[in-house]
Write a protein that binds this DNA or RNA. Structure first.
Lengths: 335, 335
DNA sequence: TCTCTTAAGCGAAACGTTTCGCTCTATAGG
DNA sequence: CCTATAGAGCGAAACGTTTCGCTTAAGAGA
């Protein structure tokens, strides 16, 4: 059987309460402190987190629910979050829900049953149904990237409207008019925002966004591929394209290469996320880059704050802005 | 306070032991079963995992230690592992150690302290020092991708020697002689294996691998970039290149594009991992593809097996083979 | 009818912490 | 010298399960 606090008490001749006090940072005489530390080292004592959790109802574990672990945007953020939380003694329990609302619900329930102290969610469901359980139990929730209407919850967002608007405005300024967009799913918050920015850019310039220039994918490589082909069938004059996430950008490029269409001579392209890809493809891509590090830091710190807070004040919503990084994938078009 | 087993007992008029028996799949009269289920639903009862863990010493959680969460090979595997384990009631506690031995050790200790039931590790350290703690506590360990000498532990590996040998042989068969290789770190198992395969291919063909054709990176994009440049300085006649992981392949391509070198006219290239990239770049890449799904499935199933096994028989080592996927990045060279 | 077997249910003890409320000692203030 | 105060230490109870060993009831076999 493993060493317990009782063994340490016996070894040092001190009481249980004193050992416990030491473990939790209380005041203990210097000589006793030394004795305890020695006993702990010799007996290789480790706190039994089950017993501690049973008393304190804290697991020092945060649940993370994301749409896809194989999505580079998700994992980039998780890396940083994990780093910060671990430095603060927290572990992260990761669940990917394959962009499925039912699985998302199940994953969240799974995490609540696993007694996580908090939940970080990049929500798939529109109404955030899955968050009601943790919220009803007083488990703090922090949202990444997508806001859920009607739920008073902390969130760290990116100004997707402005991001898309900038990209499309840039294309319009370069003389493009027939600008296609490959959006994410219709009912996803970020996707909707990016489409809104697209439309606003047109309107701002006194133009009208045409319905046949808009295609909806599901944030996968395959859908980017399919959407590009559909766009080309419907729009012979397509001169530029804006793709609204990394994976679909990949898909679109695969299709473009396959059709032997030249970027930017035949089609101008603005992609999304991930700086590496933008440099690998020839020519270098012009992309919208999201502040991944900042997003993650904000999420982690808000969570840490909530974990030590007893009363819940107003939810905190942080809005970060994106950057348009210029490559060589957009050509000026003579009008 | 949350509902406990006692509340269920009170509500149904049954004893504690009976409720517990029901919860753990024991035999209970049909009518009592129904009563219990109803009470559970009405009172929204959830097992307190702390209390259960305290009694059973099982957390139903598996720790995963990987070098980098932002490494696509790692996350692709984790996605599948997580899926399988969750279906079996297990959660995964993920730690990335930034390819740092010290952090790897700390992460493992952290996981042991968090009472994980098993540890899945893609080891960074050569001697597997970090695994001694879990092993000494009887916590099962399954290794991914890298074997640790002198440790009797389950492992799921890929035949990296054959993988590299195939790739290089293919290049030699296409008339190449000045074939550069960008390896991983010298002291990493897989890296060493891949270099071995490289050398063996030369020897098999009656040729000799020249030292100046070998460069060592550290599996990052940046190192791939640097290594390529170094190789070119040292080898004016370089006609082909084999890069031994995904990130370094990316780096090498960035450098090649930057130098306006044409693939495959000026240099032939065989990359590693990730099928998407291979189709995105122009021309399509010829790559070594690892059986990611199979690796993950094997790891998960071995772990599940160990979790229910009381006595430890001989460690199981599974060797999977890779595939050479042909693209258009290798040109036949007239000799 | 009696005995044996099996199924089902039961209470109490135990798991290893934290924490409440208490005691003891030493020191300072008057 | 006495008392008040603070610092340090202490034991016991409690957290919510699982499990051991027991009892009871029901049914089968003779």
């Amino acid at each position: 059987m493993a060493t317990t606090i009782k063994d340490i008490a016996k070894k040092t001749g001190l009481g249980l309460a004193t050992i416990s006090k030491y473990l939790n940072g209380g005041n203990v005489l210097e000589e006793n402190k030394i004795a305890i530390e020695e006993a702990i080292k010799i007996l290789d004592f480790r706190v039994n987190e089950f017993a501690r959790g049973l008393k304190t109802s804290k697991s020092k574990t945060i649940g993370v629910v994301i749409p896809e672990l194989s999505n580079i945007f998700c994992t980039s953020i998780i890396t940083v979050i994990e780093d910060i939380l671990r430095q603060n003694g927290y572990g992260i329990l990761v669940c990917d829900c394959r962009t499925d609302e039912k699985l998302e619900y199940e994953a969240t329930e799974f995490l609540v049953n696993k007694m996580v102290d908090g939940i970080i969610s990049m929500p798939v469901s529109k109404n955030g149904e899955h968050l009601k359980l943790p919220l009803s139990k007083g488990i703090p929730v922090v949202l990444i990237d997508r806001k859920v209407e009607g739920l008073n919850v902390d969130a760290v967002l990116v100004d997707n409207v402005a991001a898309a608007e900038n990209a499309v405005e840039y294309l319009i300024d370069h003389g493009h008019r027939e600008i296609g967009i490959i959006c994410g799913p219709r009912d996803v918050f970020t996707s909707h925002q990016r489409q809104l920015g697209y439309s606003q850019a047109f309107i701002k310039k006194g133009l009208f966004p045409k319905q046949e220039l808009i295609e909806y994918g599901d944030y996968t490589v395959e859908s980017g591929y399919e959407c590009l082909k559909k766009l080309l069938v419907k729009n012979e004059m397509l001169s530029a394209l804006f793709v609204t996430n990394y994976e679909m950008t990949l898909g679109a490029i695969i299709a473009i290469n396959e059709l032997s269409i030249k970027i930017p001579e035949q089609i101008s392209l603005i992609g999304f996320d991930n700086m590496h890809l933008s440099q690998v493809v020839q020519p270098k891509l012009t992309i919208i880059s999201q502040p991944i590090h900042q997003i993650a830091e904000n999420v982690a710190h808000i969570m840490l704050k909530r974990l030590v807070q007893d009363k819940y004040d107003e939810a905190q919503v942080i809005n970060l802005s994106t950057q348009l990084i210029l490559g060589e994938s957009v050509l000026s078009k003579n009008i």
